[in-house]
């Protein structure tokens, strides 16, 4: 039997395709096996329909109040301190009113207020632009409202960083490990080339603990379920005037700021 080049290529191509399908099918068959095992939420986990955070600014009085909160978070999550603004990574940080509430500034505000730092973190938006733009679902929305980041799947395209209107996302421009002074052995680090941010401490919530920053804030940060009318967040929000950053963009931020108002001092 003679065959020309074209025919040979056709047959070779089909054979290759067949091999590929066979290999895929056998892989699928062998990967099954366990029938009785399953996955369940951890018993004792804190759950909510919509997690939210309230920043009570009057509770942040000294520089140490901010530092303690930031350190609690960054130390637990092995957030590196690279020491230059270009490669910087931060999950929770501070800035002043005119930078936090852009467009709301007013030159006649009290001087002390103008300089007062505001704690900043991921807003875990209801309608998160970062989730919308991610091409691999590496950043995604959990049922409880947390905007989660899957470092295993992130391809490092940084579309989410362009999309976030709050500057909440950091990219690992280089290997973070040499810049972590004391490592927390119970939590992983990240690797170069992935994006990271605050996760509302999902791993602690699932153990029944509050987020690290909340634990360290002495009541300056209140965390709870926005859908539960009896939760503490709902209570403080119903009693105080609160603001959200850039709510006009329709992102639905879940971090609320109570700025003085009824409280004794700012």
């Amino acid at each position: 039997m003679s065959m020309d080049r074209r025919e040979f290529l056709k047959i070779a191509g089909l054979a290759g395709l067949g091999l590929g399908i066979g290999a895929g099918a056998s892989g699928w068959i062998f990967s099954r096996g366990l029938e009785a095992s399953d996955f369940i939420p951890s018993p004792g986990a804190l759950t909510a329909k919509r997690w939210a955070m309230v920043v009570v600014l009057s509770k942040f009085k000294t520089e140490d109040d901010y530092k303690r909160v930031i350190k609690a978070c960054h130390k637990f999550h092995n957030v590196p301190d690279i020491g230059n603004p270009k490669d910087e990574i931060k999950w929770i940080w501070t800035d002043t009113y005119e930078h936090v509430f852009v467009g709301q500034e007013n030159e006649y505000l009290p001087e002390a207020f103008k300089e007062k730092p505001f704690p900043l973190l991921c807003n875990h938006c209801t309608n998160a632009p970062c989730v919308r733009v991610c091409p691999t679902k590496a950043t995604f929305k959990r049922k409880d409202g947390i905007t989660m980041q899957d470092y295993h799947r992130c391809i490092g395209c940084r579309f989410c960083m362009a999309a976030c209107p709050y500057g909440a996302r950091s990219f690992n421009w280089r290997d973070p490990r040499p810049f972590i002074k004391e490592t927390n052995p119970t939590f992983p680090t990240r690797t170069k080339g992935v994006v990271e941010k605050c996760t509302y401490c999902v791993e602690l919530l699932e153990k029944g603990e509050m987020p690290k920053c909340v634990q360290a804030s002495n009541g300056g940060l209140i965390f709870g379920d926005l859908q539960d009318p009896n939760s503490e967040v709902r209570k403080v929000l119903s009693e105080n005037f609160s603001m959200r950053r850039k709510a006009e963009l329709g992102t639905g931020p879940s971090v609320f700021y109570i700025i003085g108002g009824g409280e004794e001092d700012v």
């Binding site: 091409p135 590496a138 799947r153 490092g156």
Partner: peptide, 18 residues
């Protein structure tokens, strides 16, 4: 890309909203 070896994730986890 920060993780170029994972480029096939775009096809493996197709995301029409992106």
């Amino acid at each position: 890309m920060g993780q170029p070896m994972r480029i096939m994730n775009v096809i493996l986890h197709p995301t029409p909203n992106s």
